[in-house]
Lab assay of single mutants.
Amino acid sequence: KYLVLALYDYQEKSPREVTMKKGDILTLLNSTNKDWWKVEVNGRQGFVPAAYVKYL
């Protein structure tokens, strides 16, 4: 498993997404889509914009 760092705040806009705050450390679950990565944060799984996170 990889960890990624939230570069920006992101507010979920659909039930498939998750909210994150700048500085959050997220567990990367799937990065096959170049635009949306599946992550786990605070016990929830969902998608965030790939451009908003970077590998640690």
Rank of each mutant, 00 (worst) to 15 (best):
K1D: 09
K1S: 11
K1Y: 14
K1G: 12
K1P: 15
Y2K: 12
Y2G: 13
Y2R: 14
Y2D: 11
L3T: 09
L3A: 07
L3Q: 12
L3M: 12
L3V: 09
L3R: 11
L3F: 15
L3H: 11
L3Y: 15
L3D: 05
V4K: 01
V4N: 01
V4W: 08
V4F: 08
V4G: 10
L5V: 15
L5E: 14
L5I: 15
L5P: 00
L5F: 10
L5A: 07
A6C: 10
A6V: 09
A6I: 03
A6Q: 01
A6K: 02
A6E: 01
A6R: 02
L7G: 03
L7D: 02
L7Q: 05
L7W: 05
L7H: 03
Y8D: 09
Y8K: 13
Y8L: 11
Y8N: 10
Y8F: 14
D9N: 08
D9L: 02
D9Q: 03
D9T: 05
D9W: 03
D9E: 05
D9F: 03
D9Y: 04
Y10G: 01
Y10V: 01
Y10T: 01
Y10H: 05
Y10R: 02
Y10Q: 01
Y10S: 01
Q11E: 15
Q11S: 12
Q11I: 14
Q11F: 14
Q11T: 15
Q11C: 10
Q11Y: 14
Q11L: 13
E12L: 08
E12F: 06
E12R: 13
E12I: 06
E12C: 11
E12D: 05
E12H: 09
E12M: 13
E12G: 15
K13Y: 05
K13N: 10
K13T: 14
K13A: 13
K13L: 10
K13F: 05
K13V: 09
K13R: 14
S14D: 12
S14T: 14
S14A: 09
S14P: 04
S14I: 05
S14K: 08
P15T: 11
P15C: 10
P15V: 11
P15Y: 09
P15S: 12
R16G: 15
R16Y: 15
R16A: 13
R16V: 12
R16M: 14
R16K: 13
R16W: 15
E17H: 06
E17C: 07
E17T: 09
E17V: 05
E17W: 04
E17A: 06
V18P: 01
V18E: 01
V18T: 06
V18W: 04
V18I: 15
V18L: 15
V18Y: 03
T19Q: 05
T19E: 04
T19C: 06
T19Y: 04
T19R: 05
M20L: 09
M20A: 02
M20R: 00
M20Q: 01
M20K: 00
K21M: 11
K21N: 10
K21R: 13
K22P: 04
K22D: 03
K22Y: 04
K22Q: 11
K22T: 08
G23S: 04
G23I: 01
G23M: 03
G23W: 06
G23Y: 05
G23C: 07
G23F: 05
G23E: 02
G23P: 00
G23K: 02
D24M: 12
D24N: 07
D24S: 08
D24V: 04
D24C: 06
D24Y: 05
D24T: 07
I25F: 06
I25D: 01
I25Q: 06
I25R: 06
I25K: 05
I25A: 04
I25V: 13
I25T: 07
L26C: 11
L26N: 01
T27G: 06
T27I: 15
T27C: 11
T27W: 12
T27Y: 13
T27K: 12
T27N: 10
T27R: 14
T27D: 05
L28H: 02
L28D: 00
L28K: 01
L28Q: 01
L28F: 04
L28T: 02
L29W: 06
L29P: 00
L29F: 05
L29I: 15
L29M: 08
L29K: 05
L29G: 01
L29A: 03
L29E: 03
L29V: 12
N30I: 08
N30S: 14
S31K: 12
S31L: 08
S31Q: 10
S31C: 13
S31A: 14
S31F: 11
S31W: 15
S31Y: 09
T32L: 10
T32S: 15
T32I: 10
T32F: 10
T32W: 11
T32A: 13
T32G: 11
T32V: 11
T32E: 14
N33M: 09
N33L: 09
N33V: 05
N33T: 07
N33D: 15
N33E: 10
K34Q: 11
K34W: 07
K34R: 11
K34T: 11
K34F: 08
D35A: 12
D35C: 13
D35R: 13
D35Y: 15
D35W: 14
D35G: 10
D35E: 13
D35V: 15
D35Q: 13
W36Q: 03
W36E: 04
W36N: 02
W36T: 02
W36A: 02
W37Q: 02
W37G: 00
W37K: 02
W37V: 09
W37S: 04
W37L: 08
W37M: 05
W37A: 05
W37H: 03
K38L: 15
K38P: 01
K38S: 08
K38G: 06
K38M: 15
K38R: 11
K38W: 14
V39N: 01
V39H: 00
V39F: 01
V39L: 03
V39T: 01
V39R: 00
E40I: 08
E40K: 07
E40L: 09
E40C: 11
V41F: 15
V41N: 12
V41W: 07
V41L: 15
V41C: 10
V41D: 04
N42M: 09
N42W: 07
N42Q: 10
N42R: 11
N42A: 10
N42I: 04
G43A: 06
G43E: 07
G43W: 03
G43C: 07
G43K: 06
G43Y: 05
R44L: 08
R44G: 04
R44E: 06
R44W: 03
R44S: 07
Q45M: 11
Q45D: 07
Q45P: 07
Q45W: 08
Q45E: 12
Q45I: 15
G46N: 01
G46L: 04
G46Q: 01
G46C: 02
G46I: 03
G46D: 01
G46M: 04
G46S: 02
G46R: 02
F47L: 08
F47T: 03
F47M: 09
F47P: 00
F47D: 04
F47V: 07
V48S: 00
V48L: 03
V48N: 00
V48H: 00
V48G: 00
V48D: 00
P49D: 01
P49H: 02
P49Q: 02
P49E: 01
A50K: 07
A50W: 02
A50C: 06
A50G: 05
A50V: 06
A50H: 04
A50R: 13
A50S: 13
A51Y: 10
A51F: 09
A51G: 12
A51V: 10
A51M: 12
A51L: 11
A51H: 13
Y52H: 07
Y52S: 11
Y52R: 06
Y52V: 06
V53L: 15
V53K: 00
V53C: 11
V53Q: 00
V53D: 00
K54C: 15
K54P: 01
K54Y: 10
K54V: 15
K54A: 15
K54L: 14
Y55K: 13
Y55D: 09
Y55H: 12
Y55M: 15
Y55A: 13
Y55E: 12
Y55F: 15
L56R: 05
L56P: 05
L56V: 13
L56T: 08
L56W: 13
